[in-house]
């Protein structure tokens, strides 16, 4: 089980982001995880509470978005939603496919509260552009 080391990496990255943004606390952390990344969402959630203890993310909610497994066929070009152990084209059945979604393990976004509340609004506006 390597979910704890993944959580330690999350905390490292989130800590940097909190520092850069002068955040007083982290409200939520959103990950994107595909089935082919090799990590399990329930185990990540379990490990997260240990890794987050006594850090800026201590009270943060860990939100895990599970991404679908999608392949693009190199023969017919079709995109197919498939299961993790059958990465063949849903249209023509060829196995020469390129995975275009499903092996991600990403820190997608962080929701934080800044020490100066007015900056929250400014940053949110800047983020929308």
């Amino acid at each position: 089980m390597h979910e704890l080391s993944i959580c330690q990496e999350i905390i490292l990255q989130v800590n940097d982001i909190a520092f850069q943004n002068q955040a007083s606390s982290i409200e939520s952390i959103t990950l994107q995880v595909g089935p082919l990344s090799g990590v399990e969402a329930p185990l990540l959630k379990q490990a997260f509470s240990f890794a987050a203890a006594q850090t800026v993310a201590e009270n943060a909610e860990l939100i895990i978005e599970e991404l679908p497994v999608v392949v693009e066929c190199k023969q017919c070009g079709a995109h197919s939603n498939v299961v993790a152990n059958k990465l063949i084209c849903g249209q023509c059945g060829d196995y020469h496919t390129q995975l275009i979604s499903g092996d991600e393990m990403l820190l997608a976004s962080v929701e934080l509260t800044r020490e100066n509340p007015e900056e929250n609004i400014e940053l949110a506006e800047a983020n929308r552009v």
Partner: peptide, 11 residues
């Protein structure tokens, strides 16, 4: 009132 920051960084 919190700010959402997009990251998209490999874990």
């Amino acid at each position: 009132g919190a700010t959402s920051i997009s990251v998209l960084k490999n874990l």
